[in-house]
Design a binder for these strands. Structure first.
Lengths: 241, 241
DNA sequence: GTCTATAGAGAGATAGAC
DNA sequence: GTCTATCTCTCTATAGAC
């Protein structure tokens, strides 16, 4: 249902600014705790103007989720549908996941919240449908393709794993890594988004994936998963948002 | 600061009932979305009566967190301070973690939410201090003891891992496993709390821990991490809350 | 201990001017 | 497109009777 609201260049900029501000605030505070007033302030417009672009708060939130998940899907899809054996494409997809979360850490918190909300309550889109599900569906379509392909792949058959189990472990580990670190070690200078620390995490995840697939991974001879604050920042300085 | 409010036997029962109902609702819906009215309804009292036991909503929430985390701490502490080599106690602690989450799944969602909230916003106790931190502190004390002990332990020294990294991966994986499964596969009969599925997850986690410690784990010769809905429920029937 | 009743703040939605 | 003004509802917190 493409909203028929055509938008001028200026309007498009405003719309994007609203989306960006909302993404950050919804991620940091959650749906209920986020005030439209604060979103408006961040964009330096008035609250009522938001309604011009998004019917109501829920629609704005859904637009944010759609945006964030679409970006992720694109990355994962690219990795999974590339050429080459599954045993390479699957780790590539895991790496793409980690990198995307690093670039767009809002995703980590939004996902954390959506998962926490899931199953019961009010996290429902306008039509009373669970919000997360709609945005996750494309990933299942992807997964189904891969599983099908995997049934003819000796590596996958041998590993004989439960994709949901695997995906949920990876997702949980990364999302916790990004969001929980600064939380639990305030003042320790922890920066999970710093390129070197993110790389360490990526390494750990890849290691796990390879192990689950039962194929030799990057860990061979490289015992490096150590990422405390004392790591020398010889890489560079940015990596935050 | 022990509240000086002495409570009669009847009062104690009411208090516990409020705590239990609040735990479930805060976990399912989050702090902001939970109505004290709903808590009262669940206990079959009137909203105003809650105030007799808990000054306000925030205090009730903090009491819930304190209760849940205290229970966890007890389990982990027991496992970690037992006798025997660290290489056995650490996996035991991981298993205790998984089992506790299985018994008290509220913890998974509460933790998910607290982590998502962390860093920025309003998840602050009365004194303006981050809520999570206070309840997590005892775990750090524990961790510090173990790290100190580990410095003299050849196994630990060799593995040379970052405890925070490890703990966050394990926590993330389990919590996602418990909360994300039913969310992402509604209607698939997924029951992460079912004993057999929980056992499969515990196995996966232990495997990971052993691998990280660089010692032989339970995985040797037992390729069993498969936990889809088709698993025959030959164990038993309960395991839900 | 538990209740009824009410006060009071907050925040989303809407109407309509510019 | 963006604003001001206002309406209305929801929910917490409080006062005080039983």
């Amino acid at each position: 249902m493409p909203e028929a609201v055509r938008i001028s260049p200026r309007g498009e900029r405003t719309r994007q600014a609203i989306l960006a501000a909302a993404e950050r605030l919804f991620a940091e505070r959650g749906f209920a705790e986020t005030r439209l007033e604060d979103v408006a302030d961040a964009v330096e417009i008035r609250r009522a103007s938001i309604v011009y672009y998004f019917r109501d708060k829920r629609e704005l939130y859904d637009a944010v989720l759609a945006d964030v998940f679409a970006g992720l899907h694109e990355r994962i899809e690219t990795a999974l549908l590339a050429t080459g054996p599954l045993a390479r494409r699957i780790p590539a997809a895991a790496a793409a996941w980690v990198d995307y979360v690093g670039e767009r850490p809002s995703l980590a918190r939004l996902l954390l919240r959506e998962v926490a909300d899931s199953g019961y309550r009010a996290g429902l889109a306008r039509d009373g449908e669970p919000a997360l599900l709609a945005h996750i569906q494309p990933f299942f379509a992807l997964a189904a393709r891969i599983v099908e392909e995997g049934e003819a792949d000796p590596v996958l058959v041998r590993a004989h794993l439960d994709p949901v189990h695997v995906a949920s472990s990876i997702a949980g580990a990364t999302v916790f890594f990004v969001a929980a670190m600064p939380a639990l070690l305030p003042g320790h200078g922890f920066e999970p988004l710093r390129p070197d620390q993110l790389a360490a995490h990526r390494h750990q995840i890849l290691d796990l994936v390879h192990r689950l697939l039962g194929i030799p991974g990057p860990s061979v001879g490289t015992p490096r998963p150590r990422a405390d604050a004392s790591t020398d920042a010889s890489t560079d300085g940015h990596g935050s948002r």
